[in-house]
Design a protein around this nucleic acid. Structure first.
Lengths: 194, 194
DNA sequence: ATTAATAGTAGCGATTCGCTATAATTGCAA
DNA sequence: TTGCAATTATAGCGAATCGCTACTATTAAT
């Protein structure tokens, strides 16, 4: 079937003008209700990331990379979270430029709110939920691809992850032994296995 | 099959903690690239809404309702867009409290940028694209439901829309005749047909 | 005529954000 | 070893966002 260039263009523009506003409104409406725990949406997003990232991926630069923000912005956000006692500074001894932010138990608690978005999702059919999550992941993967940003996948899905050495799980990139549970965390360095 | 309350809770929490960050990151990464036309993401969202809403739905309150923001915030945003020449004020003569913001041709042009999100979407399979859009619409519908906010659907899908009177299309709620193309616009008053 | 509700705005304080320095530290190369 | 470039985090600027609390103007209700 022949499709004219004009029609193709109209389709593209239509998609572009459909998805963005849709995603945008979903985000804004859910964000409008998310101001509960005296955290802003940005602070919540940073805190959530810190709760899921491994110890090699909790520096300001890496949070900025994940959120698509600048280091300066993230630096301020993390300082605020620290003032509120939700994260704790941890200065590196190997490289004195590096700072790591670890989530505190108080920070973990702050994440436990129920989002309206989650409730709305639960109302959908099980297979529609699955299709939606899968589709969003695929979309994010593509977006990461075009932007050239890092995927921030799980450690265990990495090409450098070795689940079974005599000493336990191991990262062949950083050449360190992995603690229990770390394989299931987000890593800044992750590159998907072949 | 028996499902324990504890397990049910973990599922819920898991969904809530899966979708929110996913949607959040998608939004942030796409927003980070959307600063091209010297418009902020919020300004872009307001402008996009104004380009798609009918003449009964372009007041600050209604924009605020659509975006899930307060009237005060939106008031400022619209003033900024007006200073930039992308929208034009239009004071009502019937009700002197009302102001309507119409998009200008310059504003239309500003919307024509290609979003990275649209490009990413185009990379997906056709049926996956469809499933994603459909799923997001369903999710938004549910969210609107639980929030008790208005759906902001199209005029032609409304229970008060009459497509064929002797004088042409007609709105039985506001009791006005509809101009050409208005049936395809967003309406603040829209209530889905039965 | 008085009161209540509605629509838009101004101003406050905190935060976000891109941007441009700046300081501290590290790594590499001559 | 010395010196310079790259990296990391931060400070400060200006604009914008945002919830909030007045406040004005206008309209509707009693």
């Amino acid at each position: 079937m022949m499709i004219s260039y004009r029609y193709y263009n109209r389709m593209m523009k239509n998609d572009s003008r459909t998805l963005r506003p849709l995603l945008d409104r979903l985000f804004r409406l859910s964000a409008a209700d998310a101001w509960l725990g005296d955290l802003t949406p940005t602070q919540m997003a940073a805190l959530d990331y810190l709760s899921r990232a491994n110890r090699f991926s909790r520096a300001p630069s890496q949070v900025a990379d994940f959120l698509g923000a600048t280091r300066g912005t993230v630096s301020q956000t993390l300082k605020t979270l620290e003032r509120k006692g939700l994260v704790a500074e941890h200065k590196s001894k190997e490289d004195k430029r590096r700072i790591r932010y670890d989530i505190t138990s108080s920070g973990q608690t702050a994440l436990n709110g129920v989002s309206q978005l989650g409730s709305a999702l639960a109302e959908l059919d099980a297979d529609q939920q699955q299709a939606l999550i899968t589709g969003l992941h695929a979309l994010l993967h593509q977006l990461v691809q075009t932007r050239g940003s890092r995927p921030f996948g799980l450690c265990r899905d990495c090409r450098y992850h070795d689940p079974s050495t005599p000493q336990g799980a191991f990262c062949r990139l950083l050449e360190v032994r992995l603690e229990a549970g770390e394989a299931a965390q987000i890593c800044h360095e992750q590159i998907a296995a072949a």
